[in-house]
Structure formats: C-alpha cells, structure tokens
Design a protein around this nucleic acid. Structure first.
Lengths: 182, 182
DNA sequence: TGTGAGTGTTCATTATATGTAACATTAAAC
DNA sequence: GTTTAATGTTACATATAATGAACACTCACA
C-alpha cells in the first residue's frame, strides 16, 4: 500500500497543490511533500488532518481504489454463472472473476432439507437477501424467522446465523454480503 | 475517532494481550500500551504493523463498528416493505430503518419504458444485481447490455451507467450497492 | 529578457513516536 | 504466605516525523 502515491493521486484528483491542501488542512506543505515521497510515514492524526483538507475520511483513503479501473466484465449471463456447492446448497457468485470486490452477490438454491448446520455461522460484515421462491428458515441469535417469496433480511454477519430449507420445495434466494466472502 | 479504544477493543476481541499482540506484530508492548492510552498517535506504518498481528487491514480497523450491535430488526416482510419511487421506477429498500448500513439491498421494478435518464449515473462504490423478471437494458461506459431473467451484473458505480426497460413487460430486479446510497 | 506567482523539494530545528528496561499489580500454584 | 508468570504502565534514550525557511524549477506575462 503506497500511502504517498495515494495521497498524491487523491490530491491531484481534487485539483489541489501541496500548498493549497496544506493550507486547508492546517499542515505544512513540506509535510505533504515528504508524505507523498514516502520519506516519512505520517502519524494517523496528521494523515487525518491532511485528508480533512480534501475532505476525505481515513476509510475512504485506505479503501478507495485509485488504480486504473481495469476493464472488468460487467454482466454475467444466467447460463454462464459458475455453480459452487457448499454441502447440498448451490451458490452462483456474480462477479467471481473480478480482481477485487466489495461484495459477494449470489443466487443461492437451498434444496429441501438443506441446512448451513447446527454450528451457527459468524463472521465479519453484513448480509442481506430476498427469497425468490420456496420458504426459508433463518435463525439469527436466538430468534427463528420463516421467510416466503418477497420476504427479506438484513443483519450483521457477526451475529450467529443459520439458513435452512424446512419447506417442501427448493428455496431460491438472492443475497449479498459485504465484504466479499466468496 | 478513538484509535486507542478501537485498538484495545479489537485486540481484546481476539483474545490477545498487549505483549502477545506485540510479539506477533513485531512491535513492542509499550508501543501498544501508549497507542491504547492515546498517549501517542501512531504512524500509519506502525499501526499497520500492529494490526498485522491480529490480522486486520487498515480499512477494517477504521470502518469496523465496535459499538454495541443494536437490537436491529432482522427480517422485512414483503407486504411491509416501504415502496419508494424515483420517477416511475419503484424501489423497495431492505433494512431502510437500520441505523447504519454498509449496503443498499433493493427490490426494484422498472415499468415498461422506464429509464434512469440520458444523463448517466456515476457515484462512489460498487453495485450488483440480478434480473428476476422481464428484460433490462444496462449501459455501462460505452457498452450496452440486454439482460434477461437470471442474468446479472457487477460494476464500479463510478463508471457511467444507465438502466432502462426497453421490453414489453415490467422488469423486476434485485440489486445491491455498497456503500448504502438509499 | 526579466519578473512574479505558482509548483515541488530540501535542510536544520523542534516536536513526537518508538524501543529498552524497569516498575507495580493481579491471579494462580505450591 | 511466597513464588511465578502473566498483566498493563512508566522513564529515559533513541529514532522518526513535522515545522519553518530556504531553494530550484516552470509557466505566463510584460
């Protein structure tokens, strides 16, 4: 991660000179020069102060992809979607071949009786989804929910959760998680 | 933003002592102590090095919400979903009443002839979606795509884009954007 | 051909962060 | 009670970053 190059790119992108940004941010131009040349590793507070002149948050600074947006594919045909299997659950991941994704967007099919398992799932991030066909039993924490087509959910992935198809037909679910898990 | 408190929380969450983390990260325990007490503002490089012992990225560190996970609602019934209208396009937002969301997960309906407009959209983030019914014309950059049910897309929202229903029936789309725009 | 306002860089000084090694406190083991 | 190993904190020396004032350079304009 090239902090200097990124700051330079961000600054240029906003049409600011080192001195102009320095004035707005309340730091000196030499500080910015040194940071951009990677002659120093700025403290969190000074980087934050510097970015306040843009303005830009630290999250944005570290997550924004300055690199050229590669000519990534945009659309994924239904018949081309690669099917993955986790147990008997089928998942088709949209954008799987992209270099970096912020999300995992998926078309999932839970066959009758399928289950992510008694051991509850728990991981970083957030997830949301909508049932398109069939019924789904969703457990989050100590609550159990039953979802029909058109019903949806949104929760923090750190909360223990479990998906089951307790119905009598396959359940199809369109879901999304962030960050990308798959 | 309380860097010290956050580091402490993250460290505790992973069951590490200052010394243990220090050893894994290749810094000294006193450095960690000082950072956690906010007696110093660590340099980006030393914070990064410190987090490598967790391990955790800078993005995660600055974006992770350590605050207590509020008792947010989890599921949203089809009939309860609030319908929003942008022109003649209908959008139902999942999780709208949540305090903070990383994503906008939506159930959208594009009536025949509807269009996000000649002026292409362009904003921060990434977006993905899958057509559930009808057909959709998606323009990204200079490319025009036609999607049928089961087809999907994933692209950087900074790329100019436009959605149109050029078909002869309503188009239903389940989509997600990050960060949350709606 | 200056001249002036802009650009980014560099140097010496000052301020701040980090490493080393000590300290005090707690909890478990004997 | 004493020991032992763990915890987090602190003091001082050293390393590093930030400041303020110079410097060299480019470009527009007279």
């Amino acid at each position: 991660m090239d902090v200097g190059a990124r700051l330079k790119a961000v600054r240029k992108m906003h049409g600011l000179s080192q001195r102009e940004l320095a004035k707005r941010a309340g730091v000196t131009n030499s500080t910015i020069s040194m940071i951009e040349k990677n002659s120093v590793s700025p403290s969190v507070s000074s980087l934050k102060k510097t970015l306040s002149g843009i303005p830009m948050s630290l999250v944005e600074f570290f997550s924004t992809d300055i690199d050229v947006i590669a000519k990534e594919p945009v659309i994924y045909r239904a018949e081309e979607l690669l099917e993955m299997n986790a147990g008997d659950i089928s998942m088709k991941i949209i954008g799987k071949n992209r270099s970096n994704r912020a999300m995992s967007f998926m078309d999932e099919v839970y066959p009758v009786g399928s289950d992510t398992g008694e051991e509850m799932l728990s991981h970083e991030g957030e997830e949301a989804g909508m049932v398109v066909a069939g019924v789904l039993e969703l457990t989050v924490g100590h609550e159990v929910y039953h979802l029909s087509p058109g019903d949806s959910y949104y929760f923090e992935s750190s909360r223990p959760h479990r998906f089951r198809n307790t119905g009598e037909e396959d359940c199809r679910l369109i879901s999304c998680t962030t960050p990308a898990n798959f």
